[in-house]
Write a protein that binds this DNA or RNA. Structure first.
Lengths: 353, 353
DNA sequence: GCCCGTAGCGCAATCGATTGCGGACCCGGT
DNA sequence: ACCGGGTCCGCAATCGATTGCGCTACGGGC
């Protein structure tokens, strides 16, 4: 007759210790490679055997409570359904996982209050560091966290405060490459759909665009930039319509990102504009499936997966060393040429409309 | 002269109790709405005031250790970069969040070993339940978990074992709608690119396809189904090529999902097939951006966000009630008609090749 | 004036693992 | 026989919150 079993409680350290005939403290030391030298080799292997046979798995919650470490980092992104982010997340997880860490993911929906409360809850869950993809140029919350000594890496976007370590694409060079590509094709009047100027990506791409025009001896007429209030299809469409309606003359568009470029496609359909014959378009990011569009979109490729993995590596490094060399990394971008760009049909002087 | 402060330790329950001049136990009861009636109203509000002023936040780790609840559920998906999943994840989080729960996400990459070890690690982190999107028809691991009493909801796919609660789309009706649409357009010979038959979605759609053909008085020749080994573009392309090379006669394709349909687009480009003039295609899932393809893809829309939110609601219910009424839900699907489907150019008897 | 019911709170154990401190023991040297 | 120095290991506190149990008052009923 067997003793009655409590509903299959998973084995604890105490159970292992009992089985091996040692004190829980000894079992703990035997199980931890770092403290194993403190216990007799034979005892240690006995403990390990028992742990194995019992299927013992340390309780990370109890461990966290005592050590106040959680083997977890917080991952703050605007919105997971934006196709930009899944590859970033995978890149992060693929580095964190082998290092014994996990990522805890939250979506802020670009809402600053939500962001603050979510980061709060991450911190109370003892995350050891943060990877933040929601940086705005002015971002008091992030400045404050940094001042409090929170380990943190910005990804994809940066703040104006360069003290915060970051991993981003080399947007300036990316834009320059796009302008060079269009100039090579013969375009002389190129417009830019600029993303939100309170984000580093929006601002840097905008400035780089103007600089690149000058470098190619092209006119940097301010009317050749349209501001978009958000990185969305709708805003891209709105901005392009505005430029067309204003009667601006141009033969190519550099969109601040692929979603803005998608908005352009909507306008093409609306107004019977043929791309690239009437108008060339370059996107930014090279999102998944963008090569299946009509026509396939030429886009500046951003290595999102690598952005993620690099940020994770950087954060892990920061977590290990108490004194952390803050640095920021720019990853190189490349232009993926597809069929949305071609030589201009009109001479620069002609009006498209 | 101030006493030296330890590096800003966040306030604990003990600090609150001290400040309010009560025992930690009383403070705990005052803070918890469920036990608050046990303490004098005035005392309770004093505790709340002190907690507020100290910025007290309960330590979820300590709480979890004691209560062995974690306010966390595990979310097991194959691969976050598959555009199917982000909306599901958002649906889940949007329900879990307000209920005080969080989701812990893992990617299995469709690897059974990886899946097992990830679920293991989720369980050792005390997740209270699982939402699983990686079900295969035969899935001993899930059967075992269910037998062990793990709270679990399957999403998107099911197992053969109907004991496991699930939330999926009504695939059979969805396929029937697609077949009806094509039949209405005049198609008589329709092929199906069937997804992996070890998944419920693959099998159900396949069977429903054959049934729908019969219902419409169409030939259900077995040669009109091509098997795909995975839900990928490459497999979709391979399968379509195979059908074409075999000289099969058909005017329309129902792809097991949108990725398989994308593979068809690749073959169209390769072989100069014009869609929908030469061949109509229907996808399945209605992924984001699929309306931007060339031509925009007709697809059976699956409400992924709702799949997620419904699964989360169901799981929460299961977590609250000790006796759980297991049930499974089929969400209705609708056909989104776009330009990849049109009337057949050839009579059924003619060969496309 | 005595007893009992009840409201309000405190005591201490508990969840499971970690770790500083010190005790037991062994061994060799003198 | 005694001592010093290691090696191994156990004791007990600790992380922070929760909770069963029981104590103290107080008030009303007889």
């Amino acid at each position: 007759m067997s003793t009655t079993l409590p509903p299959v409680r998973p084995p604890t350290l105490r159970d292992v210790a009992l089985g091996a005939g040692v004190h829980p403290a000894t079992a703990s030391r035997a199980l931890n490679p770092a403290t194993r030298p403190l216990v007799n080799t034979e005892t240690a292997s006995r403990v390990l055997r028992v742990a194995e046979s019992l299927g013992y798995r340390p309780n990370p919650i109890a461990r966290s409570l005592k050590t106040s470490r959680s083997a977890t980092v917080g991952l703050v992104i605007p919105d997971l359904t934006n196709p930009l982010f899944p590859p970033i997340v995978r890149g992060i997880e693929d580095v964190l996982g082998p290092a014994g860490y996990n990522a805890w993911l939250v979506n802020t929906d670009n809402d600053a209050d939500r962001e603050e409360s979510l980061i709060d809850s991450l911190r109370s869950r003892q995350v050891e560091g943060l990877i933040v993809a929601t940086a705005r140029l002015q971002h008091p919350l992030l400045d404050r966290l940094h001042a409090e000594g929170v380990r943190m890496v910005l990804i994809n976007r940066r703040t104006a405060n360069a003290d915060l370590p970051s991993v981003t694409g080399d947007d300036a060079t990316g834009v320059a490459t796009a302008v060079a590509h269009l100039a090579d094709l013969g375009h002389r009047r190129i417009v830019h759909l600029a993303g939100p100027q309170n984000t580093s990506t929006g601002l840097v791409r905008h400035r780089a665009f103007l600089q690149a025009l000058r470098d190619h001896g092209l006119d940097d007429d301010l009317g050749l930039v349209a501001q978009c209030a958000s990185w969305s299809e709708e805003e891209g469409a709105r901005a392009l319509r505005e430029l067309l309606d204003a009667g601006r003359e141009f033969t190519a568009v550099i969109a601040g990102n692929d979603l803005l470029a998608l908005g352009c496609y909507d306008v093409f359909a609306e107004r019977g504009i043929e791309c690239p014959r009437d108008l060339s378009v370059v996107g930014f990011n090279d999102m998944p499936f963008i090569d299946k569009l009509r026509p396939p979109l030429t886009s500046v490729r951003v290595p999102h997966y690598e952005l993620g993995s690099e940020a994770a590596r950087m954060l892990l490094e920061g977590l290990r060393s108490p004194t952390w060399q803050v640095r920021s990394v720019l990853l190189p971008l490349t232009l993926t040429r597809r069929q949305s760009t071609g030589p201009p049909r009109h001479t620069p002087a002609e009006n498209l409309g």
